[in-house]
Nucleic acid binder design. Structure first.
Lengths: 223, 223
DNA sequence: GATAATTGGCTCACCAATGGATTAGAGAGG
DNA sequence: CCTCTCTAATCCATTGGTGAGCCAATTATC
């Protein structure tokens, strides 16, 4: 008998997990089954699984079973769920990463109709006179730019950011920092950005968006 | 038998709803009917439906029935659902937007311990000899960089990308394009990136990551 | 309008599956 | 002989599924 049976079994199991043998349900067979099929005592299986759990490869739950950790907290919905805790600063940082590029993509990829939609949102934001209406068309302006980027995932990522922003602290911050002067400033920056889009200038659009977000960030976060 | 019956049923029902099986009446059969046709206890059906309601996929009303909520399309779960359709090219584009900045953030924000974790993933990738194990540590390397960026949302966004990549066409593409030479190339680029992180050079890290992703993109998408 | 049928909400007792833990013993190797 | 690993058996705690029953709200029927 080899003196390190459990380690061997651990290695073998790790390989079978990585190869996706039980990936369909994300669940490893129960200890007792593994013991009989591998012709080994349940104790030994348990020690092998202890190793894998130490490594974080699996998790075990009394009464439920042994589960592969990849894909455990990794379903799209669960990840989205965890995003709820993000701070306004974190969200702003991500916007700075995504939105300028989205604007650049839109400048090159958007159809005339899509740009017309962006323009419509801008016009409505200009005309709106109360804060909620302006907020709505402001958000719509940004979202329609993402929708014009021709990257489905990018658009949906913005949808996610928008969902996050519509929650908890953001609304208060926005309300507190809103003013007529800032609204005019936003509208002016939107207008400049729109001009870059309409003239199909990706780098100009990227710059205009970056500038606009810098303004927003300064207003909301005070820096 | 299977200790995850309710979860399986939830998955199956979600699929049937998405397929439009009951779209005409917007209504799912009563719990008791589902129980008998699926041959399980009503309690189990209820647990499965609880999951779907949590996700916002259905709503239930005493005395009326269980209804499909095709509404708004703004819930996080639904956004996540739409992301499933993203093409590999779209995903790659987003990675190019996020990962170089994540590397730059990590260079400035990471603790020594976090960088040690990144290094560990790199070492394990170097040592792994079969493709699934390498894939695992490769993904882990990238993810630990995001975890070191100190931006929760950024980290979760990468989790989202990873979840998308672990689905459908990606696995085939990776398998088809994998080779020992490419593995060595990836490891070398990871090493260069890691050096920039350890020497706390944000712009160097950003550049190294951008270069690495260019290689990956060329290999996977052929351009 | 009154009554019955339908439908989701809830609880309970019961059982099987499963991981957690302990104990005792058999062999192997120093 | 001592130590270490594996075997074997046993008991525990938790979880999830079953089956049954009753309640509450809604809808159909007369």
């Amino acid at each position: 008998m080899a003196r390190v049976l459990a380690a061997d079994i651990a290695r073998s199991l790790r390989q079978r997990i990585d190869a996706g043998e039980w990936a369909d349900h994300g669940r490893v067979p129960p200890e007792r089954d593994l013991a009989t099929t591998l012709g080994v005592a349940r104790n030994t299986i348990r020690r092998a699984l202890d190793v894998l759990r130490e490594e974080g490869a699996i998790s075990r739950h009394i009464g439920r079973g042994t589960f592969i950790r990849a894909g455990e907290g990794q379903s799209l919905a669960e990840v989205a769920q965890r995003m709820r805790g993000s701070s306004p600063a974190d969200i702003m940082e991500i916007r700075l990463l995504l939105e300028p590029s989205a604007a650049a993509f839109a400048a090159t990829n958007a159809s005339a109709g899509e740009l017309a939609n962006v323009e419509e949102a801008h016009r409505n934001a200009l005309l709106s006179d109360d804060m909620p209406t302006f907020e709505h068309w402001d958000a719509e302006f940004h979202h329609r730019i993402f929708a014009s980027s021709r990257n489905v995932l990018l658009k949906e990522m913005h949808g996610l950011l928008r969902a996050l922003r519509s929650q908890s602290p953001w609304f208060d911050i926005k309300k507190r920092t809103f003013s007529e002067e800032r609204r005019r400033r936003y509208c002016a920056e939107h207008g400049a950005l729109l001009d870059n889009l309409l003239s199909r200038d990706p780098e100009g659009a990227r710059g205009a968006m970056a500038e606009h977000l810098a303004t927003v960030s300064a207003n909301l976060l005070g820096r």
